[in-house]
């Protein structure tokens, strides 16, 4: 058994396809990015090595910092608006249950299976000043309904609304699964003790959902950083980089502004930021889950 399970050739053939995919689609491009990040390559013609000039430029690049700000806004929007609503809706759905449960779950998730291309163009029409749905709704409620949703002040909020709307079903579904995994005996015990619904939600559901919330928060921050496709089609970063995101910005720099070298430098920094964010979030949450058993033990003793 041991000999069979440590046959180097067999192991090699088993991991080779995976490693090839990793080398070819992930590692090689990252190395290329690092290389081009040190050059002034435009996308064609010759290139010169310019050392750290691209990175120095990046530090003072307002558009890049705007894109970081927008990622932060988006992450906050996910965590402070989308997730609380998702948890509450998931809890209500679990409580009321019955026949409606499946239908509601299905409706909430549908936007998630629709292509970003469709979602982005659909929302461009919803925001349309002439016949857009949103202005018509505002008119129906007696407002003026002539807001320019992609104006300088409004644009970033309009983009955030679309992203929060689109991802709602996903977050809801994960919280819903988490709630379903809670042992119903706990609810029964609480009900016998005379706890109100609100107390049950705050004292039982929420604390037990902590690991799920942590996973969801991590994913929210990462996806806020990685955001590109919706913005690319909705506003393409405009007006004036107000809705810029890092991925979109590096794409623009490389293919529209013909600063391929600079685009790659942004890419390198972007990858580092994503790696650091992931590691940092995992570290923060790992720390807490180590504290948890202690609390539980204390309670058990007490």
């Amino acid at each position: 058994m041991k000999k069979l399970y440590s046959n180097k050739l067999v192991i090699f053939t088993l991991v080779l396809p995976g490693l090839l995919a990793f080398l070819f689609a992930i590692l090689a491009p990252i190395c290329l990015s690092v290389y081009y990040g040190f050059t002034d390559y435009t996308g064609m013609g010759s290139l010169n090595f310019i050392g750290l000039a691209n990175y120095k430029e990046l530090v003072h690049d307002k558009a890049f910092w705007l894109s970081m700000r927008n990622s932060l806004f988006l992450a906050l929007g996910f965590i402070c608006i989308q997730h609380p609503i998702a948890i509450v809706v998931a809890a209500i759905l679990d409580k009321l249950g019955g026949r409606g449960e499946g239908v509601f779950r299905c409706i909430y998730f549908i936007p998630n299976v629709i292509s970003v291309a469709v979602i982005a163009y659909l929302w461009r029409f919803i925001y349309n000043p002439d016949f857009g749905l949103l202005n018509n709704i505002i008119k129906a409620f007696g407002g003026k309904g002539d807001t320019n949703w992609f104006g300088t002040d409004m644009a970033i909020w309009s983009v955030l609304i679309v992203l929060i709307w689109h991802g709602f079903g996903w977050g809801m579904l994960i919280y819903y699964t988490g709630i379903k995994n809670i042992d119903p005996v706990l609810y029964e015990a609480a009900a016998i003790d005379g706890a109100s619904q609100k107390t049950i939600f705050l004292r039982i559901t929420l604390p037990l959902m902590k690991p799920v919330i942590q996973v969801n928060v991590t994913m929210a921050v990462i996806s806020a950083l990685k955001q590109m496709e919706t913005v690319y089609l909705l506003t393409n970063g405009g007006p004036n980089n107000q809705t810029q995101f890092a991925a979109n910005y590096l794409y623009q720099q490389a293919f529209k502004a013909y600063k391929y070298g600079y685009g790659n430098a942004i890419g390198v920094v972007f990858i580092v930021i994503c790696l650091v964010a992931t590691v940092l979030l995992n570290w923060i949450f790992r720390d807490r889950s180590e504290v948890n058993p202690k609390i539980r033990r204390k309670r058990a003793v007490g």
Partner: peptide, 28 residues
């Protein structure tokens, strides 16, 4: 299976989860 680099290879393959897809658009 039993081999020395199994942990390293696993980590490498899982790394892809952290790399933003769109950063590879230009070099790819």
């Amino acid at each position: 299976m039993h081999w020395r680099l199994s942990g390293l290879v696993k980590m490498l393959l899982l790394m892809g989860m952290m790399i933003p897809i769109h950063a590879t658009l230009l070099p790819n």
